[in-house]
Amino acid sequence: MAPLDLRELAAELAALEVHFEEGEHGLLELTLDEIISDAELVTLEQAWDGQAFIITSPITQDDDGTISIHFEVGIFFLPLIVFALGALPVGLLAWKLSKITAEQWLRTLKGIVIPLGAVVIGGVIIMAGKGRWPSLVAGGAAMAGGGYFAYRELRPVPPTPPVPAGKLQALREHGGIRQPVLAVMAM
């Protein structure tokens, strides 16, 4: 038996003339002439995995040669929404960045870069998981962690009470003598 490939399965899907929406579940049944091995079933599963359709349970084959593929159409708009929500705090942090003093730069850099990285990682997790709920939870947790870190680093610090400080001025004249004074002597 020639190995099955995705194009063959896609052709079967097209023949069904069924349109799926994102997030919907479906069942594809293919009838083969012979019983294929478990390894070939795994190969078939791997050919599907990584595509738009997510296999939700192991592929099985009945005694009559019918292969049942339970699948789910990946949710792609959800990661985009979450990504946008993740970008919102980053934008707010950038706005805050414009208001900080130079002394806070290092702290702010941590507060910006690390949350931004967390948002990107969270987005990657969600995209890699094709919007499945576990990936949403993991990616969302990464983003939330980034947001908390940003809050911790950039939250307003209570002003410290002013400490008396000396303030020096270099004078240009003192006691009728212009300053500074250079004396060179040899003795």
Binding site: P164, G166, Q169, E173, Q179, P180, V181, L182, A183, A186
Partner: peptide, 19 residues
Amino acid sequence: IQMTISLSWAIRNVGDADA
């Protein structure tokens, strides 16, 4: 026997603490 190079500058403290 010795050469001295001396530099001085008058400084005023206009703050509230020693400097």
